[in-house]
Design a protein around this nucleic acid. Structure first.
Lengths: 157, 157
DNA sequence: TTTAATCCCTATTAATTTACTCGGTTATAA
DNA sequence: TTATAACCGAGTAAATTAATAGGGATTAAA
């Protein structure tokens, strides 16, 4: 039940793109360096984002990537689904098989659980817009704390 | 971002246990057969559930397993966390490192996204009690539909 | 006491997925 | 034309998952 590096790196990459959106087009190499991600790997991630219509590539020298829409219109959900595939906790086939008819009544009932989890995840990510993160990022960068050297919390066990 | 078979099989197993709670103790072999799960594998899952205090084992001939508490007091969240570990979309360390200080402002900002997802998942599963599933399971089993032969929905792509 | 049925524990393995790397091609500004 | 950067597809090492396998330990009934 973990997001892969695709989602984690990819969201950072899109955010980086959005934050630096004033410049014309951002080269992958710049994002890779700023975010500490291998350029080759980042290429794969951005390919998914391009396919999903979230970013646009501009080829040739001085080329790079730009957002395909204003940051207000791009949800974190769309970004994560582009990178990770659907965000359902179990495969679609397992949830949709039957609907009214189940070979096993228990597996039938657990489907409602997966559906509730799925809905809550999708609802959460769809209500966060990229623009919110951009604003927060700019706020964090310009002062605001940043000198706190608090150590990691114990974190459970 | 998928639940493993541990969570999927394990929840079914607990539900099976809860549904058949009238009998004294349920043998693993019965659950394994009813749910179509290998008995050896199921043993591993039930061990986690036992460790988490969700089920109790009764040893010896005629032994088996029973719920450690009434089904009303057991949440799906507790079951899934026992089987899968925490339900956070990223590792705890990645979210808690720093808190007020981030080496990279973008990774700092994305932490809020992971937190929101995490909260929504945990909230969803914690509000579903095992007793609800038991009631639903009994309702499904005793008539109600079950003749519907609707084919799988297309399921995106 | 014997036997059967069960819990309990650890190790090994096969398959799958993840997280990359690498080599080459195409397009475009200078 | 040359440098730059997007684009494309295949290949691979490491990690994780999903089991399998088997050897006790414990208890209840015969």
């Amino acid at each position: 039940m973990k997001l892969s590096t695709k989602g984690r790196y990819g969201l950072r990459a899109v955010l980086d793109l959005a934050v630096h959106a004033d410049e014309e087009a951002i080269a992958l190499s710049q994002i890779a360096e700023r975010q500490g991600i291998s350029m080759n790997y980042l290429e794969q991630l951005i390919a998914k984002l391009k396919k999903a219509g979230i970013v646009k590539g501009i080829r040739g020298a001085q080329g790079g990537y730009i957002l395909a829409a204003p940051a207000e219109e791009i949800s974190v959900g769309a970004i994560l689904r582009a990178l990770e595939g659907d965000l359902n906790p179990v495969d679609c086939s397992e949830v949709n098989q039957g609907d009214g008819m189940c070979s096993n009544s228990d597996s039938c009932v657990t489907k409602y659980v997966w559906k509730r989890i799925s809905d809550s995840i999708n609802d959460a990510v769809d209500t966060i817009k990229l623009s919110e993160l951009v604003a927060e990022s700019k706020r964090v960068q310009t002062g605001a704390g940043a000198t706190d050297t608090k150590v990691n919390k114990s974190c459970g066990k």
